[in-house]
Amino acid sequence: MKIKDIIELLNATNLTPDLDCEKELHSACGSDMMSDVLAYVKDQAVLLTGLNNPQVIRTADMMDMLCVVYVRGKKPDALSLKLAVEKDICVLSTDKPLFTCCGILYDNGLRGA
């Protein structure tokens, strides 16, 4: 799956239109607890979250993730967005809730750890 496929499947807004959304992704994780993401995630490329603070992007950066999806209509603050662009992490926002997003992406071939 590519980032541009996620945009379509989740009816998401691309908040980093200048970044490459042709990157291939195979796995994802969904959590509002960055502690858990850091502890349990391995090689996931996408982080789906309802949490909005700069630690979301920093966590994604530390884990070498390629894309962050804000769910439930959440939008990142300016600092998060700036960090994401610096770190080449695509940022999407969708109105759908976390569980629904995970279900749709799983159905379309993305997997967990």
């Binding site: 509002d32 607890m33 960055m34 502690s35 858990d36 850091l38 502890a39 979250t49 949490l51 603070n53 630690q55 979301v56 966590t59």
Partner: peptide, 14 residues
């Protein structure tokens, strides 16, 4: 702290 996404008690073990 939990509302900021931390406090699972996983940091030091990690």
């Amino acid at each position: 702290i939990r509302s900021l996404g931390f406090g699972a008690g996983m940091g030091l073990p990690n």
